[in-house]
Amino acid sequence: MAVNYHEEDAIELIHKDNNPITNYNYLSFLPDKCPVCSYSLSPEYLLIYHKNHFTTELLCGCPREVCRSLFFAVYEGTNNPIFSRFYPYSKVEKDFPEEVIELSPDFVEIYSQAYHSEQEGLDMICGVGYRKALEHLIKDFTIQQYPDDADKIEKMPLQQCIQKYIEQSDIKDMAERAVWLGNDETHYVRKWGDKDIKDLKNLIDLTVYYLSMTLKARQYREEMVR
Rank of each mutant, 00 (worst) to 15 (best):
residue 2 A to R: 13
residue 2 A to H: 08
residue 9 D to S: 14
residue 10 A to Q: 06
residue 26 Y to A: 03
residue 27 L to H: 01
residue 28 S to H: 01
residue 28 S to L: 01
residue 30 L to E: 01
residue 34 C to I: 02
residue 35 P to H: 00
residue 36 V to D: 00
residue 48 I to F: 02
residue 49 Y to P: 12
residue 51 K to M: 06
residue 55 T to K: 00
residue 59 L to K: 10
residue 62 C to K: 03
residue 62 C to H: 04
residue 62 C to A: 09
residue 68 R to T: 00
residue 70 L to F: 09
residue 70 L to H: 07
residue 71 F to V: 00
residue 75 Y to R: 01
residue 80 N to Q: 11
residue 82 I to R: 12
residue 82 I to S: 08
residue 88 P to D: 07
residue 90 S to Q: 05
residue 91 K to D: 02
residue 95 D to P: 04
residue 100 V to F: 12
residue 103 L to Y: 04
residue 104 S to Y: 15
residue 109 E to W: 10
residue 116 H to D: 03
residue 123 D to N: 12
residue 124 M to A: 11
residue 130 Y to T: 05
residue 131 R to D: 07
residue 143 I to R: 10
residue 143 I to P: 11
residue 146 Y to W: 03
residue 148 D to Y: 10
residue 150 A to Y: 11
residue 160 Q to L: 14
residue 165 Y to W: 04
residue 169 S to Y: 04
residue 176 E to V: 09
residue 178 A to C: 07
residue 178 A to L: 09
residue 181 L to V: 02
residue 188 Y to T: 05
residue 190 R to H: 07
residue 197 I to Q: 07
residue 198 K to M: 02
residue 199 D to M: 02
residue 202 N to V: 02
residue 205 D to Y: 01
residue 208 V to A: 12
residue 212 S to W: 07
residue 213 M to H: 10
residue 216 K to F: 13
residue 225 V to N: 11
